[in-house]
Amino acid sequence: MRVLAINTSNAFGEIALKTEQEYKKIKIDNPYSENIMTALQNLLEDSNVSVVDIDAIGVVTGPGSFTGIRIGMATAKGILCGTLKKCVSINSFEILSYNIKDNNFIVLLDSGNDDCYYAIFKDKDIAEMGFEKVENIITFASKNNEKVYYSSLERDKFMEFDYLDEVKIDEKSLIELCYNKAQNNEFTSLEKLSPIYIKLSQAEIGLEKKINEGLSFREASFTDAEALSIIDEQCFSEGSERYSKKSFEGELKELSKHYIVALYNNLVIGYIGLQKLGDELNLLKIAVLPQYQKLGIGFKLMQLGFDYKTKSNLTTYFLEVKENNIKAIKLYQKFGFKTESKREKYYDDGETALVMVCR
């Protein structure tokens, strides 16, 4: 098997090639847009291999440099479209974690600003990704007795923090990861190959501003049932969490339940579902279409939920959330929700639910 790997997500751009007999790697000089094709050609010629001889192409999808990620992915996609080769997707956190023996840990990457990218690993798999101040991550890690690692290539960013552990990245990490995934048939379709940005790029910041200008909220009506079911189809896997149009029609008829929808230019793009139970308020569901996520819409829906609680003079706000849904749990914690109990095998897939309460 011959596997090619491309990484332009950081300042240490590289292209690597591995076959059954050999491994070769070449550095990509900046600017990547001008030098990546020359580097690729030089590597293939030096290895006496052509693009058509490659079995799979791996590419790092981020997080990292917005421009760098786009260049690497555009190059990989160009080759994939022209040759119909198989694709392997690698994220930047995987490269670092490949050099760590622990099962549960946190890894950090330089974001180019005061904060940093982080990934929380549970049983060697990524449970959560995000960006945060290093000091806040250290506080979280120390409370939970978690180790935190960073790459020796980014020593200048992290060396001042005594709590952190430095990891030396083996130069073969990228290609070994790609090669192993290819051998295990862990391929990604071209349609699903997408960048991991985590933070908003300047273009996305512009999009957020544009969307906010056209964003509005209102109480859901019976005619919104179909739009709500379409959101659920894109946000939830099949099971009790995904509601059909008929289910939403039933929900919207119940007097104890209250749904608020988010609209962008009159298109329903998100919602929050609430239910009065005596002097308590239950957060039933909250969802935003994937293409409109990470733009603060879910946060605003949560705020409207609290506004409804206040107007209704309710004393307690509670919800159920999957125990492994760390991203959602962190959002709820920001609003003051605390875990009070668990419900074993609460969901159709056997997952445990945390009962979180805000008083």
Rank of each mutant, 00 (worst) to 15 (best):
I120S: 09
I137F: 05
L200R: 13
N180H: 07
S89K: 15
K143R: 13
E132G: 00
D165P: 00
T83Y: 13
L193V: 06
F187Y: 14
M159F: 13
E154W: 00
V148M: 03
Y163N: 05
V148S: 09
K181V: 01
S201C: 07
E94F: 03
I138K: 04
G214S: 15
S189A: 08
E204P: 02
K85N: 13
D165H: 10
F121T: 06
N113M: 08
E171D: 15
C81F: 15
L200G: 06
F161G: 00
S151Y: 01
E191C: 07
E94T: 08
D110N: 14
S152K: 10
E176S: 08
F121I: 02
S142P: 00
G130T: 05
S111D: 14
I198L: 13
T83Q: 11
D162W: 00
E171S: 11
A141R: 06
D110G: 04
G206Q: 11
K181R: 13
K192M: 13
K85Y: 07
V88F: 10
D162S: 14
Y150G: 01
K124D: 09
I95M: 09
Y117L: 03
V88S: 13
A141D: 12
G214Y: 12
S97T: 06
G112F: 02
L109F: 00
I106G: 09
L207P: 01
I175Y: 01
N145A: 14
N185E: 13
M159G: 00
I198C: 09
I196V: 14
E128G: 00
Y163I: 05
A203Y: 10
L153Q: 09
K168M: 11
G206L: 11
I126V: 14
L96Y: 05
S111W: 01
D114V: 12
N180T: 09
G112S: 11
N212G: 13
N91V: 02
E94A: 11
L164E: 08
N113K: 14
V167E: 02
S151G: 03
E176K: 12
I100R: 06
K199E: 12
N184P: 00
K101G: 10
